[in-house]
Design a protein around this nucleic acid. Structure first.
Lengths: 198, 198
DNA sequence: CCTCATAACATAGCAGTGTTATGTATTGTG
DNA sequence: CACAATACATAACACTGCTATGTTATGAGG
């Protein structure tokens, strides 16, 4: 009988090794765990399956992180807070973040990626309902555009080209996007700045 | 004496194999070229050096692509054209683009990455000089922000999560950014749309 | 309770990887 | 022309993911 505990153990250990910047190889992964190399094949059907499971784990953790942002009376501030949480998560475990968007973007459950995006979609809908955005803005479109900004920021900082200070660009970028959606510039700026730092 | 032709030959062949989505391994790289595996070590000091050279090559090609955008009388349109060229280059050779921003972002000549960014910086300066942007906008800051948008777009489309149609988001994103820099919304939109498709 | 097919396990081996050590040839130089 | 230095070729090494082959444990049916 497949023991789910072994599965979690391997995923956790792989994530731990990834965070420690140690190479995650078949043998180094199972070393010290008591399980043999074959476990990776019975549970993940090989290393590729392990990486797929790692991507899934990454989205699960991201969703958990985004779920901690509870709606306030300022929906635009909440949107900025979601963006800040996204970046915080990405830079806390940059190697896992890189694996998530690695070549061969495949997930066991593709809906997991959509779920995380839906946090943003719901945020946009709340802002629209509160009259902050112009009528007619497509929540999915605006959420996707916000995602692009967040991913560009996270990717450039996590992979090295830009220093961590560059994260501050998130404020003017998100402000520009939300203003283009109809929010009042001054008020938008204040909301984004408030949400950006928790 | 080191023969520079061998160096170019290996880089070109590696780029070709990368574009053909064939695994670039030490032995498969030199197979058929007449040179032996040791050449990779005398010219690149190992595979890591080869990847570093590939990154450099990627930036060289990108700079060549951006250089084809000659300034017109509409600097905002030119900025959008630079963005479109950036994305066009990234999606034409997605694997090379991925290598460029791979983990361990190291270049033989780090100035190469700055040079490509300078195309955007100069574009912003021209737009400012033409009175399209508010006085006081930092060209490097705005160029960096435009880069973030372009990279987020390119990365999400190149690695799989978003379909190529998502590239259309570049127009509203860049428009929002340039409007936030002071350009008039309607005029800006027209300029960006003109530059986005060559 | 016993039987036995099925699934999970451990071990050993294979083809492939990047790298390095060693010997050979070629090249540039005093 | 002699010789040191350098580029090259070959072979071996440690490692990778993976698979074939036993071996053990588990659970269902009579």
């Amino acid at each position: 009988m497949k023991d789910p505990a072994v599965r979690s153990l391997l995923i956790d250990r792989a994530a731990q090794m990834l965070a420690a910047r140690q190479p995650v190889t078949l043998r180094s992964l199972v070393a010290g765990t008591g399980v043999s190399t074959m476990a990776v094949y019975t549970y993940f059907d090989g290393m590729d399956g392990l990486w797929t499971a790692m991507r899934q784990e990454g989205f699960t953790r991201l969703a958990a992180r985004l779920a901690t942002i509870t709606p306030s009376e300022d929906p635009v501030r909440d949107l900025a807070a979601l963006g800040a949480a996204y970046l915080s998560n990405a830079l806390a475990v940059p190697d896992l973040y890189r694996v998530m968007f690695d070549a061969g973007f495949e997930l066991e459950n593709p809906a997991a990626a959509d779920d995380t995006l839906h946090y943003l979609v719901r945020g946009v809908e709340r802002a629209s309902a509160a009259g902050r955005f112009r009528a007619g803005v497509d929540p999915l479109e605006l959420a996707t555009q916000a995602w692009m900004i967040g991913h560009g920021l996270a990717s450039l900082v996590a992979t090295g080209p830009l220093p961590p200070e560059a994260l501050a660009h998130g404020v003017p970028l998100l402000t520009a996007l939300f203003v283009s959606a109809g929010d009042a510039p001054d008020r938008c700026r204040r909301s984004v700045e408030l949400g950006w730092r928790p």
